[in-house]
Design a protein around this nucleic acid. Structure first.
Lengths: 150, 150
DNA sequence: GCTGGCCCTGACGCGTACGTCAAGGTCTAC
DNA sequence: GTAGACCTTGACGTACGCGTCAGGGCCAGC
């Protein structure tokens, strides 16, 4: 299988596969006589593992233990100790982010309410509907802040 | 007030102030006869507004309406309509992130549990404590993924 | 034999928010 | 008069995950 076919089957691009190889994330592909990279099904499995983890918000480096687990011949990339450790630290990271977002949401919602009150006071008495919208938004969710992975 | 003093009072650096000015986020500072930038208290207020929002995870561009609100002479940066709109869209963004993190956490926790079972099966019967740790972690939190702003 | 599609390597671009360095001018104090 | 602390502009570096050329080789079909 050449790079274009593998890329398509994996839902990615040749550029990305070369990039992973340059990082040492994927093992160097065999080369055909003309210098073209030659891949097997095991490479597809590694790429699927990487993509899944990326969709979860893992960085490429965090996928490395999973890929190496597959390279070591394990049927799954996440049954090795190092992979399990990454899963666990990711859960902790997620929890930390969630807590931060929750706190920030509360802060922003409070600021919004205050600012709307002050805006109304500044302008006189005319912007009532804004306050109702705000109250709805304030009750709707939890805080979030920034751009978490994934 | 020169740039170094303002930066220190605002808890930032001269480089950052020049950067903001280059973005047009801060108004161009007056210049003393020697070419040095000269600032007043109003610049400090703008910087405090920017810093607060950054701690909430706002990007610099998102702080622009707040700064312009102050520049327009309002006593607070967040009582203008554009600022309120940014607050509201930020709340929505936070809620979206929180939902995503929650979903991802559930996925990762499920994968972790499955992988631990499979790891135990692969190795025979010896890795029991791992499963107990996992159960604790799985109950502890919610999902998170990636690196949200702030 | 030639067009078109695939492959190769190397290198620059992007977005964010600055840090850091270079090369030089200015002002204060000793 | 000179050391030291401040200021100026300009430009490159950082982290991430590739996208997008540029310039060139390889191969199948007509």
């Amino acid at each position: 299988m050449r790079i274009g076919e593998l890329a398509e089957r994996a839902g990615t691009t040749p550029r990305t596969l070369r990039y992973y190889e340059s990082l040492g994330l994927l093992p160097p592909a065999d080369r055909a006589g003309n210098g073209y990279r030659s891949y097997g099904e095991e490479h597809l499995r590694m790429l699927e593992q990487i993509r899944t983890l990326q969709e979860y918000g893992f960085g490429l480096e965090e996928t490395r233990p999973f890929v190496e687990c597959l390279r070591a011949g394990h049927p799954a990339g996440d049954t090795c100790a190092a992979s399990l450790a990454v899963y666990r630290s990711k859960l902790a990271e997620i929890d930390a982010w969630t807590a931060r977002l929750t706190a920030v949401r509360a802060e922003v919602a409070a600021q919004l309410l205050r600012a709307e009150r002050e805006a109304g006071a500044e302008a006189g008495a005319d912007a009532e509907p804004l306050c109702e919208l705000t109250a709805v938004l304030a009750e709707a969710g939890r805080p979030d802040e920034g751009t978490p992975p994934q």
